[in-house]
Nucleic acid binder design. Structure first.
Length: 272
DNA sequence: ATGACTAAACCTTTTAGA
């Protein structure tokens, strides 16, 4: 099965591109971030028309997340339980593990739009740290309950220098601070793996490029969109790629989709 | 040079993104 994450920077603007992308890339699950629309404006009919179920958690102007899926999601949770937040940033559901024996297995999928943080030392940075702490506490519990878990979305954090187009110039700036990277490593330490780095990748591979100053053309980017998988799923991950093709669209999002392929092995069966 | 571009709402200007 294939799962993907894409910060679309306004679903109202990007809907035609999302529909086109799904037609060309019929993934089983697509997590969307930055819908920038209220729940009543969510285009559920357009996704249903191309065979996708949807769960969404919108917000006016900012934030907003959704899960699109070939099979319906169950046990849907919005935001981080126990963390009071007026922003719509997280949506979670349980999906069938496609490719496994029928009814044999499921995967818990968390789609998240991590806070930007704006600038170290700002109120928004403090909120980012609190949010990251709350997320980790919750993901720890989810992992205990669901060994097959995928945490994907716009993390707004780079892992290390390899994720940054100019690590010297951007050292200590937002998305590249030690505080943010500590939280990212702590998430990984719960028992997750960065799907993208399970495979050889081209150097200077990024998932976001600044609209300004021809950032995409000059490949001045950051890798801040990630797909983390639990240890139970890790041996089943067969590919992880960043699809830059939507950046060639006329009015592109500043983020590219990230796609992971999970290939369940044959179901263990007793030999009769 | 605390910039550049894009999107939404407070809409000819500001806020936020990253």
């Amino acid at each position: 099965m294939k799962l993907a994450t894409w910060n679309v920077n306004s679903l109202g603007v990007r809907l035609p591109q999302v529909l086109d992308w799904l037609a060309a890339n019929p993934v089983d699950v697509l997590a969307l971030q930055e819908l920038k629309l209220t729940d009543d404006k969510f285009p559920a009919d357009a996704f249903a028309a191309i065979g996708y179920h949807a769960q969404w958690f919108g917000q006016k102007t900012y934030n907003g997340v959704a899960l699109l899926s070939r099979s319906p999601a169950t046990n849907v949770v919005k935001n981080i339980p126990g963390f009071d937040d007026d922003m719509s940033r997280v949506i979670t559901g349980t999906l069938a593990l496609e490719g496994a024996a029928p009814g044999a297995a499921s995967v818990r999928v968390i789609g998240a739009y991590f806070p930007n943080g704006q600038e170290p030392g700002s109120d928004k940075f403090d909120y980012k740290m609190e949010w990251l702490t709350a997320l980790r506490r919750w993901v720890k519990d989810e992992l205990a309950a669901h060994p097959n878990l995928v945490l994907m979305g716009d993390y707004n954090i780079t892992f290390d220098e390899a994720d940054v187009w100019d690590p010297v110039r951007l050292e200590g700036t937002i998305h590249c601070t030690e505080e943010e990277r500590y939280h990212l490593r702590a998430l990984v330490a719960l028992g997750l793996s960065d799907s993208y780095r399970l495979f050889p990748q081209a150097p200077k591979s990024y998932s976001w490029w600044d609209y300004r100053d021809a950032g995409f053309r000059r490949n001045r980017g950051l890798r801040i969109d990630h797909i983390l998988v639990s240890h139970a799923l890790r041996p089943l991950v067969t590919a992880c790629t960043i699809d830059k093709t939507p950046r060639a669209n006329e009015r592109p999002s500043d983020h590219a989709p990230v796609v992971v392929e999970i290939t369940p092995g044959p179901a263990p069966e007793s030999c009769a």
